[in-house]
Amino acid sequence: MHEMTPPPGATAPVFYEQEEHAHGDGGTLFGFWIYLMGDSLIFAVLFACYGVLGRNYAAGPSGADLFDLRLVAVNTSLLLLSSITYGFAMLEMDKERVSKTLTWLAVTGALGAAFLAIELYEFAHLIREGATPQRSAFLSSFFTLVGTHGLHVTFGIVWLVTLMVQVRLRGLIMENKRRLMCLSMFWHFLDVVWIGVFTFVYLMGVMR
């Protein structure tokens, strides 16, 4: 009764029978992946918006006037570094080392916070110079796109701190590992979006 019965007409068990644990985690990771795909559609629409409006300066300042690429380079390195430190946290998690996992998570959070601080400094600087979101279609779409990414990073840090408290209180139990793996996807996904931002918005914006 419990032996493998191939479906009618099949000579060998098909993939969904061999992978009995396809949803061993209850499908959470796959579900979260679907959420990320939806999130990337949000960013696709914002990128499209910027692509259409990004050159409409309304006689105001352009990207070449406003962007400081050195700041963007620092920001990019911070986010890239935070990606690899989160990776190290995941490796420590695999080895069941609670304190080292927490340390790497803290480093990741600090790098994320530094990224946010520089981004907020940049925004404040732009607004002080009169380059507010209301100034032109270019600036509206710029602030919406980069701001949405920054908001994602903010919530990522909130989530990260929450999970650090959880891991400290309850240790690396199955549920916490699952949550950390979801946040891992979220964090790396934000870095992927940032690749689009620094290329399409900052580097392309400065060139013309």
Binding site: H21, G24, D25, L80, S83, I84, G87, F88, M90, L91, M93, D94, M174, K177, M181, S184
Partner: peptide, 22 residues
Amino acid sequence: ESHGHHDAHGSQGTFRSYMTGF
């Protein structure tokens, strides 16, 4: 077993793969 199975999978990455990517 599915828990153990997933433990083995873990984050699926290795130090080597993360460094290569980085």
